[in-house]
Write a protein that binds this DNA or RNA. Structure first.
Length: 472
RNA sequence: GCGCCCUUCGUCUAUCGGUUAGGACGACAGCCUUUCACGUUGUAAAGACGGGUUCGACUCCCGUAGGGCGCGCCA
């Protein structure tokens, strides 16, 4: 029996859960599920300056919204500093680490010089073999890991393949800061080891770290977990994600009205594939997921495709469920909470209109917008100009009434206009005759997006019925 | 600058030496619908470039170009 799979998602709480992190979490989650294992959650909060509690909450929220659950309580990395220090001391004791008394200024100068001379930017090993007796007084040392200076370190990665690093290119990294706090590469190794993580799945930006971490594993005589470094997600323009496009937190996607199911499906398909399958359930994802089918190149985030998928999921969600989702969504839409009361009060009508509504919406935002004609309070709020137009009447008024309706009731202009025209044509009557029923629409009770529904509001049910018969 | 990685339609991808290079989104055109949407049919659209290896390369190797990531007392 092989040991159970344990994966982990280890975000640093310096901001929201961004889209790349969400996908990393999804892959870790899917892999663990696939193999009947567990996914752990560890908050990498050793950077006390930048870690915040709201960020932790945002991450937990995001994961929960996406439906990605983890095993047990989230582990605070900072809560384990004592253990990290202990390991650093151990490394020091067995000669795999040493104290370095270089000041930050010296290091900065070292980097600047290397850059000016177009040499690789690395720590020069000043204190590597220097007698600690020469240590300047008053300077608190850091502890550096003694990286092997010859040979190579090989990362056998499930996604990247066999990646070889020459040890001479890996300098002696700091594992314990002068203030006694551990740094990332040490903490990760210690935690992954102590937590029994068997599979590390994270972004390729950690590939070089993987090599350094392997050296620490080896120095400690610990088994190295299976590594998988997944490609990054780029913005639509191929460049790094920026705030303007994909680098939004998942809560932004929730606010845009995307469904978690669609999100999961889209994210899974971004960089991973199962033949030609495009739309699949989470169950299928779990059943099919494998590291081997993760591509190696970065993928661009494509809103159009996400939107299409989301429309699919909206259409295939049962009306009652969708209504519930809509109600739950409103507080996140940022449109103001007055809507939520209205939706509550309009539940029955909404549910009735849902079949027509959901076919036309690609996001929950569009769904709300499409339902405006139901949500708008009657009589519709009219400005002075609109009032005058209504007071008038006659043929000209129809064309003027349409914009009023559009503005006041949330109809689509194109839809309403063509509906009115088509209706007049079908009835063989002049457009002007419709002024009165259009006025009624402003104070009436209900309409829905299709032409038949708009006609309903015009109060001509009998003609409507006739048209429907004609249509078959 | 040094190291590592990547490169198939506009985008996400399939292909794991032999295919008319397939699918999806998007685009365009038609059908359905007396609107919109949904649905549906079809069309255009790709192996970065140059060398090898091979009977045969999108697929393997080398180089070039382009892109990405890393090189913090950040994670």
């Amino acid at each position: 029996m092989s040991s159970p799979v344990i994966t982990r998602f280890a975000p640093s709480p310096t901001g929201y859960l961004h889209i790349g992190g969400a996908r990393t979490a999804l892959f870790n989650w899917a892999y663990a599920r696939r193999h009947g294992g567990r996914m752990l959650l560890r908050i990498e909060d050793t950077d006390r300056e930048r870690s915040t509690t709201p960020a932790v909450e945002a991450i937990l929220d995001g994961l929960t919204w996406l439906g990605l659950d983890w095993e047990g309580e989230p582990v605070s990395q900072y809560g384990r500093v004592h253990r990290h220090r202990e390991v650093a001391e151990q490394l020091l004791a067995n000669g795999n680490a040493y104290r370095c008394y270089c000041s930050p200024q010296e290091l900065e100068a070292m980097r600047a010089k290397a850059e000016a001379e177009k040499r690789p930017i690395r720590y020069d090993g000043t204190w590597r073999n220097r007698d600690p007796a020469e240590a300047p007084s008053g300077i608190k040392p850091v502890i550096r890991f003694r990286s092997p200076d010859a040979g190579e370190t090989v990362v056998d990665d499930h996604v990247q393949g066999r990646v070889v690093f020459a040890n001479k290119d890996l300098d002696d990294l700091i594992i314990l800061r002068s203030d006694g706090n551990p740094t990332y590469n040490l903490s990760v190794v210690v935690d992954d080891h102590d937590m029994g993580v068997t599979h590390v799945i994270r972004g390729v930006d950690h590939l070089t770290n993987a090599a350094r971490q392997m050296q620490i594993y080896q120095a400690m005589g610990w088994p190295v977990p299976e590594m998988s470094h997944i490609p990054l997600i780029h913005g639509p323009d191929g460049a790094k994600l920026s705030k303007r496009h994909g680098a939004l937190g998942v809560e932004a996607y929730r606010a845009m009205g995307y469904l978690p199911d669609a999100m999961r499906n889209y994210l899974a398909r971004l960089g991973w594939s199962h033949g030609d399958d495009e739309i699949f359930s989470t169950g299928q994802l779990v059943e099919w997921f494998s590291l081997e089918n993760i591509g190696k190149s970065a993928a661009r985030f494509d809103f159009a495709k996400l939107e299409n998928l989301n429309g699919h999921y909206i259409r295939h969600t049962p009306d009652e469920t969708l209504l519930a989702m809509l109600i739950a969504f409103v507080p996140y839409a940022g449109a103001g909470n007055t809507l939520s009361a209205k939706i509550g009060a309009t539940k029955d009508k909404l549910l009735k209109a849902m079949p027509g509504l959901k076919e036309r919406a690609k996001t929950l935002v569009e769904l709300v917008n499409g339902a405006q004609y139901l949500l708008a309070s009657r009589p519709l709020p009219l400005d002075e100009k609109a009032r005058q137009i209504i007071a008038d009447g006659g043929a000209v008024a129809v064309k003027q009434l349409i914009p009023v309706l559009v503005a006041a009731g949330g109809w689509s202009a194109a839809m309403l206009e063509s509906a009115v025209k088509a209706y007049a044509e079908a009835e063989g009557i002049k457009l002007g005759k419709l002024a009165q029923p259009l006025r009624a629409a402003l104070t009436g009770t209900t309409v829905s997006p299709g032409i038949f529904d708009v006609l309903e509001v015009l109060g001509r049910e009998e003609s409507l019925a006739r048209l429907r018969d004609q249509a078959g």
